[in-house]
Every structure is written in structure tokens, then in C-alpha cells.
Design a protein around this nucleic acid. Sequence first.
DNA 1: TTGCCATATGCAAACGTATGCACACACCGC
DNA 2: GCGGTGTGTGCATACGTTTGCATATGGCAA
Lengths: 371, 371
Amino acid sequence: MKATPTIKDVAQRAGVSPSTVSRVIADHPRISAATKERVRAAMAELNYHPNAVARSLVRRRTYTIGVALSRSAEAALANPFFPEVLRGVGAVARQARYFLTLTTATSYEDEREQCIELLTQRRVDGLILLASRTDDALVDWLAQHSYPFVVLGRVPGRDVPQVNNDNVAAARAATEHLLALGHRQIAFIGGPPDFVVSVDRLAGYREALEGAGLRFQDDLVVHTDFSYEQAYVAARSLLVGPAVRPTALVAIDDSVALGVLAAARELGLRVPEDLSVVGFNDSPVCAHVAPPLTSVAIPIFELGAAAARMLCDALDGVEGPRKILLPSRLVVRGSTGPAPATGKGAMPTPRAVEVVRAEVVRTFGGGYAGG
Amino acid sequence: MKATPTIKDVAQRAGVSPSTVSRVIADHPRISAATKERVRAAMAELNYHPNAVARSLVRRRTYTIGVALSRSAEAALANPFFPEVLRGVGAVARQARYFLTLTTATSYEDEREQCIELLTQRRVDGLILLASRTDDALVDWLAQHSYPFVVLGRVPGRDVPQVNNDNVAAARAATEHLLALGHRQIAFIGGPPDFVVSVDRLAGYREALEGAGLRFQDDLVVHTDFSYEQAYVAARSLLVGPAVRPTALVAIDDSVALGVLAAARELGLRVPEDLSVVGFNDSPVCAHVAPPLTSVAIPIFELGAAAARMLCDALDGVEGPRKILLPSRLVVRGSTGPAPATGKGAMPTPRAVEVVRAEVVRTFGGGYAGG
DNA sequence: TTGCCATATGCAAACGTATGCACACACCGC
DNA sequence: GCGGTGTGTGCATACGTTTGCATATGGCAA
């Protein structure tokens, strides 16, 4: 393979100067049609392609954005979140002529280091990062050095560009679904308490309870990580504990809900007759387990797409909203049903929701897209 | 934010020339310890970071590798393949001081275009790509232009650098496991026939049958895509067809196996009493469905890591194998059991495998790591 | 003819770094 | 005192583009 042709080779071949070739590449209006054609012919003959590195150097733009997703436990393997958000980011980025560079780290610190490296070395023009913890040193650093970035998730108390789904509304809707089915003892299995998503979903759960005039009970709430195994343990403790056994349960993630299903099966509890279960994320597996899992569908692709749109706009100097909140959908399947009749006169079951194969979908939440 | 400091600012501050600063960055042995210290102090004071773009231009290396995974149906959402292979690639790449750029495309053609763009524009030093189809125009193009690349998968009949798991051996082992349980009517649900993985796993299935003295029967083989829904349809056709109903089934993917489980449930067939099922990939969900799914575990992380190692070595001029074949593990769970006794005198069940909660793991396959 | 404007192109200087070569200096042995 | 060797640093130039400014050319009005 001979040396890659440069702009000079093309210039020589077309009988013009390198600057003219450069202007042809940019489709400059002051270059005559005849010259453009001749130069383009030369480029084709030599199979010339502009060197992106050299362009980046002089334009001071790489047209690459960094994506940091691995920093969260949510991006774990079983979770469809990771590839789906990347699809969304990629679709918009490509359309806006940006490339993607991503970090792959195992620890929070390593991830932070990689992001800083990407920006200080000017390998990327901006960053999209998944923010999960309630306090995040990287976000502070980025804001302080005024690097362009967009956060996927919510950063409490900091006014930074962010895209999120309305987790409070989502959890409220999930809980209200159970309330509407007549449940009164509703438990909540949350994630680590230093995760924003845990805080928000717990808040939504609480709002729904209090909105229905019920008391928030500490002993119906348990925190785990996002794993199936931990959820299994947590569910057992909730279901065989000394307290009144809950008839319904909101799980912070589908994998957690699967752990709950396993625990219930083990304890001889039927779902949904004895226990209703709601999960989050509407991962593909929800439709494929027995019973099919009722779950809150998060618009993952759209989250990624919105974040990319926001960042690309900022980089291209286009005005736009700096905060976006996307709505979710409750997908009702077989794992939720009417509350069992209690011994003492049976709570009324307001109205049964169709729970068979057909999925009942409801949309809710979203908003705050102000500048 | 003031302008980013350059090597010249550091030089001025340290009272040396830019070239000396450059040599300090590279830890050149001919720079005195005193000078090095002074320059490093200046770098720290100015918060200087070398500009990667400028370095790339003059070194003619970006220290970035492109990763193209979205080109395969295998990389679909529900599939843990995608993030896991990326983890493997990322771990090795980072260690070798390379960054990752990835393509996100929806079509095969778009993906091809993006890869070519990455290489011709010199945005990346090399490419790792998932090759799934039996014929692949991109692989030809890469080889012809002698760009550095490594294929994840197998490219039949082309001698290109590649990393793969031994799909023939894996499918053979899965089938032999069923044979050992006494099954004689074993069906196979494969993927699209123009996928190498389909061809290889079918070949392994066939080898196992013929090794046991059984005839390969066309009507026990069905091709679908990798989706749950299509698998459900295919499984129904196999299980209610006019032919003798199979007592066991090898599915090309876990999602396909889940579709089979659903079809069986629907038809009132018990698993594993009436039908044994084996899947591929050992995705996390396998352990969490009822019955837990026996599956062939592919070393996905290791595939990614090996591919990255191979590419980085090639880029760094290090000698190494150009083909790697990794072994797989059969993870036996509850979805496979002894063949049901036939009316006419019952096939002997050679030996029961432990199938309860505990997982029986066996390793097999692998090889061909020659230069 | 002169002057002026529009159009089309070239010149040269950037962008921030790496590196071959020259050079200054000190030290050494003869 | 000389050539020789080693050590530490600077000078230029190169990497492949983009772009502000200058300039050449032609047409046209005065």
C-alpha cells in the first residue's frame, strides 16, 4: 500500500493550490464550477480522503463526543439500558456528523480519570455521562472547568444540562396502579440509597401512598443493589418477616422483580393471586417469564437521543433546552392483579385491569424542558 | 476559561525550548534530571496536558481503535453479548493505552460506510468487527486495503486475523449432553442460514448425531431469526407437526430457548419431563426462569479481550497468533433431563446428570491459536 | 484610458506536537 | 594544546489541513 494521498497530491494533479482543494472540500461558493469538477475528479482518481486528525488540529474540533456509561451499576450486564441508550446517542450523533468515543472502566474513579483524560487531551468536544450517585465529583469538575457535557439522569441541586425520565411520576404511577387494584399493604424494594434513582422512585412510591391517605411504613421498605440475588434475599425478609405480609410490591428494577418472583415461588405464594409485583425498565424478558411481569417502560433510546441532541446543539452553538424530562409508560401484564380479599370484610377492588396477554399501556410523567 | 496552555507556554515558563518539553513528556534519557524536574513543575503549575490531536498528526497514530458491533443481529438488545464484548475489548485496550471509538448503525451498509470512514479519515489505527454473515464485503475491503483489523467470529475461507469460540464443539457438546440423557429425537432451531454461527452450530449438532450413529433428519431442523417471537412459532411447528415429536431440542440462542419454553408451556408439555431444552450464551436470565435453562456459556468477555489484544499487538508491532479459538462451557440446569420412557420398551437412560439448583459445568472446545 | 468592483485563486501563516541534526560544553587521555 | 567522546539542549522542519489576506483577471462605467 503506497502512502495515503494528501491534499497536496490532489492539488498537483488538478493543477491548483492546496487551498483551492480545501475550499472544494468545504464547497466554498467562490470556487468556479469548472475547478470544482476538476478537483473532484482528481480526488476520485487518487482515492483521496481528508485526514480527520489534521482537520481537527486546525479547526480545534474533533467532531467526536465521549460517552461514559459504565460508571453505574445500572449499566450492568443483564440490563438492556446500556446498548439501548448507546443506540439513541449514536443515531443522533451520526446524523449530526459526530463520532462516539466511549470509556470502559470498572471503577468510579477509573471512569472519572478516563473522562478527564478525554477532555484535557482534547480527544473529544464534549461528554455525555450517566450520573447515578447523589453526589458526583466528576460533574463538579466538568462544570467548574466549563467543558461541554450533558448528564443522563438527575443531579440534585446542581444546575447542569441534563436529560432524565420522571422517576418520581413513574414510581407514583406504579404504586397507584396497585392501589387501584385494592392493595393497601404495598412494599418497596429500592436500590442503594446514594443513587438518585433510588431516592426518586422511593419518593414517588411515598407520594402515591400519602395521596391515597395511607401511612408510609418504614418496615415495608428495603434497600438492596440491583441484583437478582440480593433481591431474592430482600424479598424473603419482607415476605416472611414478623410484620403483616404485603400483598403487593414495587421493585426498583426488573432484575429485582425477578428475584421477588423466585422468592415468592419458593414460599408457595402465587403471583398475582397472593402477591402482585411491578418492576422497572420493561426489559424484553418481562414478557417472557411466567407470569409476565408488569413493568414501567423507560424511554431509554429517547433518553440517549435527547442527550446527544442537547450536546450536539450546544457544541454547534444552537439554542435549546438545558433540561429535559421524559415520560414513562406503565405496561400492565400478568404479575399484578386484584388484592386478595382480607379476612375481615374484604377491601373493595375498584376496577380490574386487563391483565391477560394483551398489554395495557399507560403514559404519564414528563415535562420541565425549560431553557 | 483562558486558552489551554501549549507546549510553548510550558517551555517559556521553564526556561527551555519546546523540544525539551516534548522530550520530558516522552521521558527522554538525554534530558538531565534537573531540567526534567523544572519542566514538570511548570507543567503542573500551568495545568498543562498534551494535545492528543497534535500528537496524532505528527506520530501518525491516533491510539484509538474502532469497534463495530452493531452490524449483527446477535448484538440485539436482549443479548448480553454487546456490552460484555465491549467490556473485554475496553479492558485490554485501556491497558495498552488505546481509546475506543464505536460505530452505531442500523443497517449493514451503514455500518460498512462508517467503518470505511473511520479508517480512510485516519480517525482510528485499526478495527475490531463482529463478522456474522458467511460473506462479508467489508472484510474483503479491509484485507484488500491492508488496514489493521481483527474479526470477532469466523470468516470462512479467508485467512484474516480472527477470534472466535468453537461453535461446532459447543453445539456438539450440547447435543451430546442430550444424547447422554437418552434422547434420540433431538430437534434443532437455528438462526438465519447465512450466519456463520448458524452454520457452525448446525454442523456440531449434526456431528454429535452422526457420532452416536443417528441419522440427521431434515424435518427436525428449523431456521428462524434470533427472536423470541419467531422461535415461539418455530417451536410450535416442531412440536405439533406431523412428525414424531422430539423429546429434546437445541436452540441457537437463549432468547430462542425462551420462546421454546413458552410454546411448550402453551402446549401442556412439561420441561424437562416431556421436553428437554438447551440454549446458547448462558445469559443471566437463564438462572432466573422456570425451569432454569441449561445453556452453553460463551466466554464473551474473553473474546473481546483476545480480539483487542491481537489488534493492539499488531499495531504495536508485537508478534502473536493471528487466529484464536476459545472454549465454551456447558452449564446444566433444570431444563434438561432424562428422555421419557418410550412405549415400546424404553430407551436406557445412561446416567442422570444433576439438574437441580446446582449448576454442572463442563468445559470443551478451543484451539487453533497458531501464527 | 483609468478606476472600480466582482470573481476566482494563491500565499503564507497558523494549529500543537515530535524528531533528525547540529552544536555547546565538559571531561578525558595523550 | 589537541582530537575525541559523551552529555544535554536548541533549531528547523514536518505532520495535513484551514483561512485571512493579497492578488490576478475580466467586465464595465466614467
